[in-house]
Design a protein around this nucleic acid. Sequence first.
DNA 1: TCAGGTACCCACTAAAAGGTAAGCATCAAG
DNA 2: CTTGATGCTTACCTTTTAGTGGGTACCTGA
Lengths: 116, 116
Amino acid sequence: MRSAGMYLCGLDAAVDVIGGKWKVLILWALHAGPRRFGEVKREIEGISEKMLIQSLRELEADEIVHREVFHEIPPKVEYSLTPLGKSLNTALAPLGDWGHKHMKRIEKNRHVTPRP
Amino acid sequence: MRSAGMYLCGLDAAVDVIGGKWKVLILWALHAGPRRFGEVKREIEGISEKMLIQSLRELEADEIVHREVFHEIPPKVEYSLTPLGKSLNTALAPLGDWGHKHMKRIEKNRHVTPRP
DNA sequence: TCAGGTACCCACTAAAAGGTAAGCATCAAG
DNA sequence: CTTGATGCTTACCTTTTAGTGGGTACCTGA
């Protein structure tokens, strides 16, 4: 996050919202509809509970994600995209396509080794 | 950068390429055509030479930016977008628009104070 | 001779981001 | 009466990223 100072352009602001290791994956997971905390966790391989809750809270503060608590036992909390979140996902679609198309090349350039 | 492991989706890969504090600003600066090192530096308020060269090198490794050296005195080096870089910029356009449209809201939610 | 511009490189440090592992309150099932 | 599931929270530590301040080699103009 840019600590103090206005954004230099819209892209700058957008990357500040979706930046970090997990946020786009969370957006992707919520794309198809509301999900519970545990569901999102299981969908995103490798994320820790700490990072998940932290990212969700930041996205909530940015009005991208809506959090709804159901007072039940066992506890149930649902996360979903707000209208702003949906518009963000739409704006991200071309970037997702680009990444998908060039993923192999990116991985090669980074010498990324495949998962064991 | 994702250290070891395949990307989980295209967005993931794309954010890995444009992530960090400065890269989208550099892409933006190169949008209108080739720029010299010093020109880019002057266009991006607040960037240090270290971060600029580091980001440029990474973008070059990702085949987003092309680096051309002119053997002159004083030295001259031009940076420009490769075709891949241009396609990335195109894919980023909707995100830039989104950010531009919601910049005020994002800043407010972050309590970002204006530059002095 | 001396500052200024060019495009960097290097070492060190500070700050941010991320990972690990534990604990909590509640109830149900075994 | 222990285990598991739920959705967190907290403390601590490591890794990654970014910033600072110096140096280089070359030529130009004052």
